[in-house]
Computed example of a mutant assay.
Amino acid sequence: MLRRLQTQTTEMVLLAVIVAICLVLSLASDRFFTLVNLFDLANASAVNIIFAVGLLVVLIAGGIDISFAVAASVVQYLTALALAQIGGGGWVSGLLIAGSIGILLGAFNAFLIHRFRIISIVVTIATFNIYFGLLMFFTRGVSIYDLPDWWTGKVILFERQMADGNWAELRLPVLVMALCVFATWALIRHTTTGRQLYAFGDNPEGARRFGISVAAMQFIAFGWLGLMAGIGGLVQAHYAQEVVPNALYGRELDVLAAVVLGGARLGGGRGSVLGCVLGVLLVAIVQNGLNLLGASPYAFRMIIGVIILVAITLSNAQIGKLFATRSEGRAAP
């Protein structure tokens, strides 16, 4: 009950902050609160949200992974090569190939963590460098532009022409993102596996004594993130209409900051899909606002660092102490 109250409080605070920032940006820039900009913001944030819900599952299970963005780049290249071998394929074959490769990369992380008893952040730092090094070595940094038409063709879900002649377009990545968000929500909230992930992340030793398989939890968590990385990589290449080896490099920190800001605890056992999505949107809105105001991109990197520090401090200290104090006060009478 206490954990649920903490999560709901985090979500309400995030929502209030997002509303306040949107009001300020709408006054500071007449381009912010337009349908064109809001749709562009949704399209551009879709991939990060897909990554974020995958990372959320890993954090709930008490792990951490910083290799998923580079893994998504590897998936892009391998998927492009595989599709070329089968004559182009389609969305179904593309998703199957990308998802399968992503799951294998995530399972490789889980295997190293479980087999050699190495903490997850050390393993994923290693695989981050291995994946990126191999990718750059074999591709020599060369991008792939010759992709199948279905992969690069623009798929518009909704569009409207504005008075100034610009078009507001809501594209396919938003639909894929919504499906990934729903699937993750269903997994962690409405399945036995989801409850076991929370229990394992909150108290690994207690979960182990209760009969929950440590290996299963690690493979499910990292495999799910691998699946989301594969899907996200496919969608990002569709949005960019090309496969660039370093296009996703560095995005892992933005996503990690957003997920932790959304209430996921680095120690495991806490986090929600709604908080995760709100965290990504907050980071995206801040970046979008700074771009519209002409601020330096280095200012955004500084803000990301501040967000990580503030989010970790609040999630692990202040909010917990606040609710603990209230609980003790109610129990005292």
Rank of each mutant, 00 (worst) to 15 (best):
R4L: 06
T9Y: 02
I18A: 02
S29P: 03
S29N: 08
D30E: 08
N37H: 12
L38G: 02
D40R: 15
L41Q: 14
L41V: 08
A42P: 08
N43M: 08
V53S: 05
V53Y: 07
G54Y: 00
L55F: 11
L56S: 03
L59N: 03
G63E: 09
Y77I: 14
A82T: 14
A82M: 09
A84H: 15
G87R: 11
S100V: 13
I101L: 07
A107Q: 08
H114Q: 12
R115T: 15
R117N: 15
R117M: 12
N129T: 06
F132M: 10
G133Y: 09
M136S: 02
F137N: 07
W151P: 07
L157T: 08
D164G: 13
L170H: 07
L172I: 09
L172T: 04
V181T: 04
T192K: 06
A207P: 02
G211Y: 11
A215Y: 10
M217N: 15
G232F: 02
A237E: 01
H238V: 08
H238S: 14
V244F: 08
P245V: 14
L256G: 01
G262S: 14
R265H: 09
G275F: 01
C276V: 13
N291R: 04
S296C: 00
P297Q: 06
F300V: 03
I307M: 09
L309T: 05
T313S: 15
S315H: 04
K321A: 04
T325Y: 08
R326W: 15
S327E: 15
